[in-house]
Structure formats: C-alpha cells, structure tokens
Design a protein around this nucleic acid. Structure first.
Lengths: 359, 359
DNA sequence: TTGTAAGCGTTATCAT
DNA sequence: ATGATAACGCTTACAA
C-alpha cells in the first residue's frame, strides 16, 4: 500500500540524533540555533554529524518550515557588463551564508518581470533583489503584500517597496554634462542605446541641464532602442554628425557606445577631444586604457550588489539595517577625452563627485 | 502537541482535487503526465487549478519524489564576458521548461569547484553543467558516481564524464597562428593572461605550430596570472617589446588583451598591422568595430550554453542525445589587424575554419 | 534545555 | 485509468 522504506544510503537527521543519543529535534536545534542546546549535547551532535557525513535535506526543511533559504534576483540582462558586476557582488556577499541565489532574466521587460516575480513569490523566497524602480502596478502590489524583505538595486527614487540601493542616474548625467560645460563644450550631443528606464533618467538629467544652460537642441539627441554596443556607438555618432555637424562633444549613455564613438572618430579622422569630446557612463575597465583615455562616470556596481545582498541577509535574520535607502553616489572620472580648452572662462566650476542626492 | 493545522490561504493539490472531484493523486498525475489521465478528468482538474490559482509546492514535490528540478551550473567567473554568453545560452534554453538554474562561481579554483560540487550533489540536482575538463580527481569520481546527467562545457577532450560540448582550444590557437604565418608574419608573440587551463591549451597550440615552423622563441612568450583586461594587454605588449623588439605580430589569448595591445600600439605610435599584427580570441563584439578592425577567433558561446542545457534536459527526460560529444568548432575572423604583406609567397594557404577536430 | 506528537504538500507503491 | 495508503525528512507547537 504505502511506499517502501527509506533507502539505507542517505543519512538523515534521525540517524545523527540516534548516534548522538539525543532526540531528532535536539539535533535539529543544534543545526539552526546551537546556542539553544547544551554544550554537552552540542559536541555530541556535531561529531555524530561529522562522522556520518550528514547533509541536511533542504526540501524537507523548506516543507516543514514553510520557508526557503533562497534569495531571488531579477535582472534585465545577463550580457550587460553592468549587471554582471552587480551579480558578482551579490554572489560574493551570499557566499558562505546559508542562502542561495535564484537568478532570472527579465530581458528588460516589466511584464516578464511580473511573471517571474509571481513565480518566485510562489516559492516563498527568503528575500528578493529586483532591478530598478519601474515595476508594473501588479508587481508592486505583489511585492508590497509579500512578507519577505526586498531590495531594489541600480537606482534610488521615491517610494521604495522596502529597501533600496543605487544612485541617481539623473544627477550622474547632470554631473557629466556639467563637467563638459566646465571644459567649455557647448554643442553636446546625447547618444543613447536601449533607452531602458535608467538611460531615460540619464537623458532627463542631460536635458535638464542643457535647458538650464540654454543649449538644448533636439538635433543633438540621437537614441535607439537597440541594445548598446560598440558598433551601435559608431552608428549613433554618424547619425549625430548628420543632424548636428557642429557638435563638439557627446555624452554616451553607456561606455560601449563611447568606445564605438572613439573608433568612429578615428575612422573619420576626427580629433578627440579637440574636435569631439567624449564622455561615457559606468567607467568600465577599458575606459582608462583607451587612447585617448576616456572620461566616464564611475558607478559602484560591485558594492551595489554586495551591499544589497548583505542588507537583505541582515533583514532576513531579523536585524534592521541602518538605512533602508542607500545612495552609493558616482564619480565623474575626468580623462583626456573631455579635456577642453575652457573656451569660456566664465563657466563656473561645478562639483562633479558625490552622493546622488547631494544637489 | 502537534502543530496547528493548515493555514487557509494556500491552495494545495488536495483542494484542486476536491474541486475537480478526483483524488489528489489523479490531480498530481495530471500535472506531471497529463496523458495518463482521462481527457474528461484532465479538463476538470485543469479548470479547478485555474480557478483556485494553484501553484505546486516545489519543496513538497522534491521531498516526495526524492529529486529536484534544479540544474546546477559551475562556472569560473561571473565577470568574464565569455561565460556570460554561455550563461545566457543556458538560461535561454531552460526558460520555459520546468527546470531552474542554480549557479555557482568557482573563481577559477578547482578546489572551490570540488566544494561546490559536493554541495550541489547533496541536493540531488536533475543535472549538472561544469566548465572545462580539469576537475580534481575527487570531483571526477563524485561526478562519475552520481546518477544525474552532466555536461562539460567550453572545451572538448578525451574521457568525458558524461556529455561534452565545446571546441579544441589547441586547434583554435593553431588556426590563428596559421593565419598569421600565411600572412607572412614570423616573429609572432604570445600574450596570455589568467592562464587558466583553456588559455594554457591555446598556448600549447601556439607553441606546437611555432615549433613546427621553427619559429618558436621563448622571448616571444609573455604571460601573467592576472585576470585578463585591456590594461593588462597593454602591459603585456610592453613586456614583449622589451624582450623581443622585433616582434611583428601578437596572438592574444583574449580579446580584451588584444584591445589593450591596440591601444598600446596607438600610444607608442606602432602601426597596426604594418609594424604589429594583432589577433585576439573569442571575437567579442568590439573586435569588428575597432580601428583597425581586429582579427579574432570566433567561438560559439551562446550556442554552447544553449545546447548544453538542451542536451541536459533531453537526457533528464530520458531521451538520448544524438552525440554525447559536440564539437562546436571555431572560425578565424580575418580582419585588418592581421593583414600581411605576404612577405614570403611560399607560405602555404591553411584552412582556418572548421570543427576543432578537423586537423 | 529537552522531548512528544503532529503536520508540512506531494509522490511512490501497490492494488483495482 | 484511478485510488488508498504510507512515506519523503524535517520543524512547529506545546508540554515538561
């Protein structure tokens, strides 16, 4: 009628308990809250587990306890360097803890994200890391009604679902443009690929400060929904030059676009920065190695992932983090590609470093 | 004494079965093997599940069935573009199946890999994807004694644990050097970073063909165990030039090293390819966009991941794949950076494309 | 601090 | 094709 009994191969908690001469529940306690077990029994259970090579069955644990030790991570892309740095930080922080990562790729679709979120939440994750602040209303209400801690990464904004870590893409773009203005550039183009919400926000920063300087010109803006790449960067520059031949600088929403611009300038024999200044975004490794070295906005992606996971684990384990919203800031790395001639000495110096909120 | 009863919120299989007017086991069968349930009951269970919003409890399923629907993936690095492409392929293939991915980072350490392997196997994964063919003896015997299917990715070699998909790094390097030889280059340097087993194999390919051509010279070899990067590429070139000022070409074991070499040549005003030819490895996107365009060896990383996961799923579900060892080959993408002057017309033309084994 | 009893939600086994 | 029953291995709730 029933099923045949336990195969002898596997070591269960009961075996450990028996060898240690305690009840299963005591052994169970030992693994979860050692301090709740007397020292004498602690050592007996420990050595019994060691001797038998006991490995807990996570499925049984999850079923009995009604929760898992899985942290769900939703990111838009596996290809983009930016996210792989964040991921590395997450794995780094989780490494050595009892938690494991369940990763899923939304492919920049908030509908896909909603679907994955529903899937994840159904398995009662211990915590959740989601990218950005542009979830669907449905996703939002799911996240708000669920009881596990959640961290939104990559940017900061109003109304966090729970915790948040990132920086203001708007302010970062403003700082980049301020730098170009301070260097005397005036006809500054915006080159954007993918145009996901964060690139959109960078554009808004560009737009705002250009408008304030009375320098905004639609001819200076070239974007595409294609994924960003070096090749796309070259094409965007070509487009820009056909619309605004007098452009003297470009702010690229991604570093690979910036590299593509550099190559295109070389191809077209346009001097950088004399005829065309270049500023990128994210400060990938190659930016400092290029010829000329390329200015970019450094963002703290590894730290973002690491701290997000750490905050999450802290909360899962019942501790309250110091701050629910962490602004990791950014830094404009000024390099040769944006060295200006200070064409107008009247340009005020603008601080280009600091926390996003430090307006 | 016991615990309080089921909270009313969650929908269980029993509820679905009751609403459908069948026994729980029939409902269970419907979800796993619909064809084993009569059509009449199928529709009733389906609509009942729909109506109640039933979501299966994976922990209960894993506990009862003694297996999981998790595919473990062990890769050496999250940062390296090469692996993120493979990963993307894996996620792509698994997407939409019932399997999920459990990812872990060995950080290029086979001891770390062994540890993670032990951890994974303890949870009875449905399948496993591991990187390369250089596991520890202990790892190997664990993999051989476990009963789940396993795919080794990134390269092919003798004695697969189970299945294998990749290409011969040795042959790929030979093909790259053959191309340089055919273009008339003679003092061909080897620039290698990280020197993981696959880079090592590329070096062996370089070494063998250079020796055959009686051109091997230790002064032409510069390596480092540092992770590969654009910056490191520049430094390696500098080292090479100090040891072998007459080098006329470099084979870079990674594309980022190749890009670093290009930049360093620009910095030193060394003409590419006239004074220095450059060949990279992997054919990352920027290679075709650089100025001059950079020759590289194209490898099929996305396909590698996708096909590895597909083969695994096939095997998990009981089907035998056509071939347990898949050679995805490679292709030397000849571009401007290795355009030679055919200094010696006597050089025989060598085919540079094809499966790794097609010596 | 420790133990007893019951239950977590599903599937394997055997029988019909 | 369907169902009754027991079992998967652990933890919660409560009592001692």
């Amino acid at each position: 009628m029933g099923r045949k009994r336990t195969k002898p191969g596997k070591v269960r908690l009961a075996e450990v308990a028996m060898l240690a001469g305690v009840s299963p529940i005591t052994a169970s306690r030992f693994f979860r809250t050692p301090e709740a077990v007397s020292v004498a029994k602690r050592v007996r259970v420990e050595s019994a587990a060691e001797e038998l090579g006991y490995i807990p069955n996570l499925a049984a644990r999850a079923l009995a306890s009604q929760r898992t030790e899985v942290i769900g991570v939703l990111i838009p892309s596996l290809t983009n360097n930016v996210f792989s740095d964040v991921l590395r930080g997450i794995y780094d922080a989780v490494d050595g803890t009892r938690y494991s990562i369940q990763l899923a790729n939304t492919r920049y679709s908030i509908l896909q994200e909603e679907k994955l979120l529903r899937l994840f939440l159904a398995q009662r994750p211990a915590g959740l890391i989601v990218t950005g602040i542009d979830q669907t209303a449905e996703s939002r209400s799911m996240m708000e009604s669920v009881d596990c801690p959640i961290v939104q990464v990559m940017e900061i904004g109003p109304n966090p679902v729970d915790m948040m870590i990132g920086f203001s893409h708007y302010e970062a773009a403003r700082a980049a443009i301020s730098h170009l203005l301070a260097q005397g550039f005036r006809r500054i183009g915006f080159l954007g690929a993918r145009m996901d919400p964060r690139v959109q926000r960078r554009f808004e920063g560009y737009e705002a400060i250009m408008k304030e300087a009375a320098l905004l010109d639609p001819q200076l803006v070239v974007t595409t929904t294609l994924p960003s790449s070096v090749t796309v960067g070259g094409a965007l520059l070509t487009d820009l030059l056909s619309k605004a031949p007098d452009a003297d600088a470009v702010f690229c929403a991604n570093d690979d676009v910036a590299l593509g611009v550099l190559f295109e300038c070389q191809r077209l024999r346009i001097g950088v920065p004399n005829e065309m200044a270049i500023v990128g975004f994210n400060d990938l490794e190659f930016m400092a190695a290029a010829v000329p070295t390329l200015t970019s906005v450094r963002t703290n992606r590894f730290e973002m992932g690491r701290d997000a996971a750490t905050m999450l684990v802290e909360r899962i384990e019942g501790r309250q983090p110091l701050e629910p919203i962490v602004d990791l800031g950014f830094k404009v790395m000024e390099r040769q590609s944006s060295l200006g001639r200070n064409r107008e000495a009247s340009i005020r110096k603008i601080s280009v470093t600091g926390a996003s909120g430090s307006k």
